[in-house]
């Protein structure tokens, strides 16, 4: 848009809100906490750039030597330490790059992580405001999941990093197993659409141990 003469008055600023206003619930050794301040950008290599993307990801997540050589359709990559940086598979040849929100525009921040030349070869879409993310962790978290998640979340079927889309209580959702917390307590992130965040929360806390 063409620039015009500066306006005389400053417009009001807008206050951001998270989908569930920073929800937290801890009961019976199991906790449910809304993850806020995480940016999320969908990244998909355009034609001919798959290899460059994989190489860049292997470098970013240091998986070249020991870990998986390239992103897999069922496993998230996780850069250890801070700030957080996670690459979750979201669809065929399509990923969610998640990282701590430091106030930078998410697309700009994602471009910085991918590098200038690769960024030009990627389809990138801001998804930071599209999802509610709830971290479910603790001893009984699998009991909760057994009531809403049709996917096998047992330790053997779902090693740390495993990521899957699923339908929970008629809502599209993503489940990803995060590194264990504290004394080997499993932790899962559950993602679902922002507009139905309240229904999603209702589904989770309608399950044990949040209710009997």
């Amino acid at each position: 848009m063409a620039k015009s003469a500066p306006m005389s008055k400053t417009p009001p600023s807008l206050t951001a809100q998270s989908p569930l206003g920073g929800y937290e619930m801890i009961t019976g050794g199991t906790s449910l906490i809304e993850i806020t301040s995480l940016s999320m950008v969908s990244v998909a290599p355009l034609a001919g750039s798959q290899t460059a993307f994989q190489t860049a990801m292997a470098k970013l997540f240091k998986t070249g030597k020991n870990g998986s050589p390239k992103p897999k359709a069922t496993m998230a990559l996780d850069r250890s330490g801070k700030p957080r940086c996670i690459l979750m598979p979201s669809a065929q040849n399509h990923w969610f790059l998640c990282f701590d929100d430091d106030g930078t525009n998410p697309i700009d921040a994602a471009k910085a992580l991918l590098g200038k030349s690769l960024s030009k070869q990627m389809a990138m879409t801001d998804q930071s405001d599209s999802w509610v993310i709830l971290a479910l962790s603790g001893f009984y978290s699998r009991q909760t999941l057994a009531r809403i998640c049709p996917i096998d979340c047992s330790a053997s079927a779902m090693p740390i990093g495993t990521t899957a889309r699923a339908s929970m209580e008629h809502l599209g959702a993503i489940i990803t197993r995060r590194p264990d917390e504290g004394d080997h307590q499993p932790c899962f992130w559950l993602l679902s659409a922002r507009s139905s965040a309240a229904s999603f929360l209702h589904a989770i806390i309608g399950s044990p141990p949040f209710r009997n």
Binding site: A73, P89, S90, A91, Q92, H94, R165, A166, S167, G172
Partner: peptide
């Protein structure tokens, strides 16, 4: 033809 609507959209 089946569409993985609640999955990876393939």
């Amino acid at each position: 033809l089946w569409f993985h609507e609640q999955g990876d959209r393939s």
